[in-house]
């Protein structure tokens, strides 16, 4: 370790840019095989293989949506039943107070409403958004990540991370460019 000032600047990680999705997937798989875990890939469109390659296999969103949908359905049915049977019983069209088939359409709609709202809000919150600032934005070419760039960033927080070693490792993966990202 030298004592040069710039090497002491806090580092978020080291980012490599690739020309195409195939190189990115290969690189992510190699990095995972080499033992790196705290890393993330950035792509202009979803590439399922990349998420799997960096070890992200399951999304929590479906479970949340299921819970929310069931909650919404139970809530809607029980509140209709309660209003019609307990709180304010009225005879309508000679039907029983608990005329449950008539409660199904609203039960269905509220199930969908709860589930859909949870899918969106849950996805945004699980992603830690809104987050207008993130260290990867410091990389000067990062604006390509929403256009045509494929990036892999190994974070300094990873226990395996070593400034020189990780840099050389990423350079060996056929990247277009490798750069340090300030935190």
């Amino acid at each position: 370790m030298s004592d040069r000032w710039d090497e002491k600047a806090p580092l978020y990680g080291i980012i490599a840019e690739f020309d195409n999705p195939t190189d990115l997937v290969v690189a992510a798989e190699r990095a995972y095989a080499a033992g790196y875990r705290k890393m993330d890939a950035y792509t202009p469109y979803p590439i399922e293989e990349v998420a799997h390659a960096i070890g992200h296999h399951r999304s929590l969103v479906p479970l949340l949506v299921l819970i929310a949908g069931v909650t919404g359905g139970v809530f809607a049915f029980v509140s209709q039943w309660w209003a019609a049977e307990i709180d304010y019983p009225l005879i309508i069209g000679g039907k029983p107070f608990n005329s449950w088939p008539m409660f199904i359409p609203i039960t269905f709609e509220v199930t969908i409403l709860f589930a859909a709202l949870t899918a969106v809000v849950g996805m945004i919150l699980l992603n830690g958004l809104p987050l207008p600032y993130h260290p990867v934005f410091n990389h000067k070419r990062f604006e390509r990540a929403t256009q045509d760039g494929f990036f892999l960033c190994i974070e300094a927080a990873d226990p395996m991370f070593d400034r020189t070693h990780t840099m050389n490792f990423l350079k060996s993966l056929n990247p277009r460019e490798v750069a340090e990202v300030e935190s």
Binding site: I47, S59, L131, H134
Partner: peptide, 11 residues
Amino acid sequence: GWRGSARHWHN
């Protein structure tokens, strides 16, 4: 602040 993270895309 969308940044195209693979984890984000997956969710």
